[in-house]
């Protein structure tokens, strides 16, 4: 991929979008956040396993579409998660957690059909999500993320989000926040 001015302009636009998206979550504008998700969303966080050298590509992560992952779901399910928080009686998020989403190491991995007129962009980044809960509970979720964004007027829709969390046994009691 040629990294000329068009690349950096687009990267700037995409970064802005990702930061604004993170801000919607961190400021608890969950309904508005849902509006950024494409109807055919894939939201996927595999479980990661300890495997022998040489078997990582094949076996390290659980696979989308088969078996059990932390998340392997569609927009309907993610919407249910938001609806549940908004009931006010989802005790794992009542009172609401304090959450900050950090996004860094942003790179455009694929742009279709062209850098000058992009309809679909695959973005790689790192995430650091900090959750503080009630008084003393706190969890840090760090990992790699790959998003597929689709042009939607002058903004973007998230069509796919894959979250590679750098943990094996999950070190948090819950994944009750949105990633």
């Amino acid at each position: 991929m040629k990294k000329g001015l068009a690349y950096f302009e687009l990267k700037q636009e995409i970064e802005e979008f990702l930061y604004q998206e993170a801000d919607l979550l961190d400021t608890r504008k969950f309904r508005e956040w849902l509006d950024l998700l494409a109807e055919d969303l894939v939201y996927f966080m595999p479980i990661r396993r300890n495997v022998k050298f040489g078997e990582h590509d094949e076996r390290e992560n659980t696979r989308q579409g088969e078996g059990i992952s932390w998340f392997d779901e569609d927009k309907w399910t993610v919407t249910k998660r938001v609806e549940q928080i908004l009931t006010g009686v989802h005790y794992a998020e009542e009172p609401l957690s304090r959450v900050t989403h950090m996004v860094s190491n942003v790179r455009l991995l694929d742009v279709k059909p062209s850098m000058e007129d992009p309809d679909e962009v695959t973005v790689g980044c790192r995430f650091l999500v900090f959750q503080s809960r009630v008084e003393y509970e706190h969890y840090t979720f760090i990992g790699r993320r790959t998003d597929v964004l689709r042009r939607n007027g002058d903004s973007w829709l998230i069509a796919r989000r894959e979250l590679i969390l750098e943990q094996n046994v999950l070190l948090a009691k819950n994944l009750s926040i949105l990633f």
């Binding site: 479980i47 659980t62 078996g67 059990i68 992952s69 094996n168 046994v169 999950l170 948090a172 009691k173």
Partner: peptide, 10 residues
């Protein structure tokens, strides 16, 4: 078809 493993402070 899969195994969850996680830590509960309980």
């Amino acid at each position: 078809i899969g195994v969850h493993k996680w830590i509960l402070p309980t």
